[in-house]
Design a protein around this nucleic acid. Structure first.
Length: 468
RNA sequence: GGCGCCAUCGUCUAUCGGUUAGGACGUAGGCUUUUCAAGCCUAGAAGCGGGGUUCGACUCCCCGUGGCGCUGCCA
């Protein structure tokens, strides 16, 4: 029987959940789901200075929102004793030592190395010296500077990768016995948590040989590695705040649907079996997911494609569901509204929304439109023509009401024929109702607004023309 | 500087030696039409360069070039 797959996402709570971290989490989660394994969430807060509870909360919320439920949860700050044990063991075995160089000395050495042969690696002479100092120096894993070894590992996505051991330097692993640094915390946790596959961003490739050395020093088994391509900004550098919104929560608050974002993120670096179908449900993605379909090169984050995918998902909801989804966004922008009213508007939402916060563009359903009277003129129609058109429109609505949309449309079409064209009827009506030159169909708007409000707005438009 | 990874339309990608290099987003045009969207149709748009290997390379190998990542007592 093969070992149960166990993967993890290991974010550090030093910032809000980044979209890239969310994607790494997604790929881990998909791999676990596909293989019937376990997905573990591990908060890497060894850097107490920079870690904050609010970021941790944001990370948990974000993953939950995306539906990436975890099977086990750990926090590194709860586990210092475990790391201490292993750090002490390395010290006792003579595999690690205290380095008493000050940060200034280290920095000076670094500058000299940059000027010199270019290799940046600290091989510490305190390695073999007896301890005379109080033990305040950082702890390093001892690496052989004369090693001829090339540390090789197989990456599931990239194939064999190798590094020269002698270029690594003595690896910093802890500030003191009770304060582990990243590399050892990862190695110990991955071992203790029985992680079988380390799936992470390609920015961690260079950490891998260091972690392998630590595994070997500790006698741990090596997990499988898979380094994911990065999500890029338009300039093809690692996606950051300077390119785009990177916080997952902001996408949620803008009205991107979790299933759309998940679909989009999955496609950023992975292709389904049928590459021509891009709208994929979570279940389908889980079923098809495989690491050997993951790409090697980075993918530029394209908000336009996300918008399109999101609009496709929005179209799948019925009126009541859409009213439910849009309600918080409407409330945020215009105050609380009747549910039934939102249900009436929903067909228009469905057709036009790319993301939910775009309900802003439907302001005329929630407040009186403001516009310049001149906008009421269709092409080069004058005040009189426009006023007349609006007055006739008013009569028609007054007479037949707004219950029968098609009948109303028919009557207004007839009016268009009597006048110089339908444009002369619909354009002023649109502006009167919405205050916009681009809007949904004015008859649709009329029927949603209702007879009373519609007539009020038409009258106000006529008044505007009279005064101008 | 050193080390590593990567390289097909503007973007996301298909192709696992033989294709008119396919699809999606976006763009342009058209249909529809009262505007704007949506929808449908159409168009334009790509193999970084140079060497090999081969009957035949986008595909395999090498060398360039370019981009990115790492180069912390951050993770």
């Amino acid at each position: 029987m093969t070992k149960e797959v166990r993967v993890r996402i290991a974010p550090s709570p030093t910032g809000y959940l980044h979209i890239g971290t969310a994607r790494t989490a997604l790929f881990n989660w998909l791999f676990a789901q596909h293989n019937g394994g376990k997905f573990i969430l591990r908060i890497e807060d060894t850097d107490l200075e920079r870690s904050e509870k609010k970021f941790e909360d944001d990370i948990l919320k974000g993953l939950e929102w995306l539906g990436l439920n975890w099977d086990e949860f750990y926090k590194q700050s709860d586990r210092t004793k475990i790391y201490s044990k292993y750090i002490q063991k390395l010290l006792d075995d003579g595999k690690a030592f205290h380095c008493y160089h000050s940060e200034e000395e280290l920095e000076k050495e670094r500058q000299e190395q940059i000027a010199g042969r270019g290799v940046l690696a600290h091989f510490c002479e305190y390695k073999n010296k007896p301890v005379e100092h109080a033990q305040t120096g950082i702890i390093r894993l001892s690496v052989d500077r004369d090693s001829k070894r090339r540390i090789k590992f197989n990456d599931i996505i990239r194939g064999e990768i190798e590094f020269e051991e002698r270029l690594l330097g003595d690896i910093s692993i802890a500030k003191d016995t009770n304060t582990p640094l990243y590399n050892i915390a990862v190695v110990v946790d991955d071992y203790e948590m029985d992680i079988t596959h380390v799936i992470r961003g390609e920015d961690h490739i260079a950490n891998t040989p260091k972690q392998i050395l630590l595994q070997e020093a500790l006698g741990f088994e090596r997990p499988e590695y898979a380094h994911l391509p990065l999500i890029l900004g338009p300039d093809r550098s690692k996606l950051s705040k300077r390119h785009a919104v990177t916080s997952l929560a902001e996408y949620r608050d803008t009205g991107y649907l979790p299933e759309a974002l998940l679909n989009f993120l999955a496609l950023l670096g992975w292709t389904s079996d049928d590459s021509e179908k891009e709208i994929l449900t979570k279940d389908k993605i889980v079923k098809q997911f495989s690491l050997d379909k993951v790409h090697k090169s980075g993918a530029v984050f394209d908000i336009k494609k996300l918008n399109w995918i999101n609009s496709q998902y929005i179209k799948t909801y019925d009126d009541a569901e859409l009213a439910e989804l849009t309600a918080p966004f409407v409330e945020k922008n215009f105050g609380k509204q009747e549910k039934d009213y939102l249900i009436k508007i929903s067909p228009l939402f469905r057709e036009r929304l790319e993301y939910l916060d775009q309900v802003k563009e439907f302001h005329f359903f929630f407040r009186e439109p403001e516009y310049d009277g001149g906008l009421l003129h269709w092409k080069d129609a004058g005040d009189e023509e426009t006023k007349n058109s609006l007055a006739e429109t008013e009569k028609i609505i007054e007479k037949i009401g707004v219950e029968d949309k098609e009948k109303l449309r028919g009557e207004l079409d007839q009016l268009g024929k009597r006048l110089t064209g339908r444009g002369l009827v619909y354009w002023p009506l649109r502006v009167a109702l919405t205050g916009e030159k681009a809007s949904p169909d004015p008859v649709d708007v009329t029927c949603i607004l209702g007879k009373e409000k519609t007539l009020g707005r038409v009258k106000r438009a006529v008044e505007k023309l009279r005064l101008s």
